[in-house]
Deep mutational scan, measured.
Amino acid sequence: NQASVVANTLIPINTALTLVMMRSEVVTPVGIPAEDIPRLVSMTVNRAVPLGTTLMPDMVKGYA
């Protein structure tokens, strides 16, 4: 099973992502692959992402 990116904290809308905000976890449904974490750093989220939420491609500006 592939690990996905999961919010390690509440990420407010329009926040630039940092490494400490994200962790990898095997979850269903599958979200952004964990190997993309380095690429996500400094990208911003377009909605509030609660703790434990899987990051989906449409949640990160410029990812999809």
Rank of each mutant, 00 (worst) to 15 (best):
N1L: 15
N1Q: 13
N1A: 14
Q2T: 15
S4E: 01
S4V: 01
V5P: 01
V5F: 02
V5W: 02
V6Q: 03
A7W: 02
A7V: 07
A7L: 03
N8V: 13
N8P: 00
N8L: 06
T9K: 15
I11Q: 00
P12A: 14
P12Y: 06
P12I: 06
P12W: 04
T15K: 07
T15E: 10
A16M: 12
L17A: 00
T18P: 00
L19T: 15
M21N: 10
R23G: 09
E25D: 14
E25F: 06
V27S: 05
V27D: 02
T28F: 09
P29A: 04
V30R: 14
V30H: 12
V30M: 07
V30W: 10
V30I: 15
G31A: 03
I32H: 00
I32E: 01
I32S: 01
A34D: 06
E35S: 13
D36I: 09
D36Y: 12
I37E: 02
I37L: 14
I37V: 06
P38H: 13
P38M: 11
P38T: 12
P38D: 13
R39M: 11
R39D: 07
R39W: 06
R39H: 09
L40W: 02
V41T: 06
V41P: 02
V41K: 05
S42I: 03
S42P: 01
S42K: 08
M43Y: 09
M43L: 12
M43Q: 08
V45P: 02
V45L: 08
N46M: 13
N46V: 10
N46K: 11
R47A: 13
R47I: 14
A48W: 13
V49L: 10
P50N: 08
L51Y: 10
L51D: 09
G52A: 08
G52W: 04
G52Q: 04
T53V: 11
T54Y: 02
L55I: 15
P57D: 06
P57G: 06
D58Q: 13
D58Y: 13
G62S: 07
G62K: 08
Y63T: 03
Y63W: 13
Y63C: 04
A64W: 07
A64M: 15
A64H: 13
A64G: 14
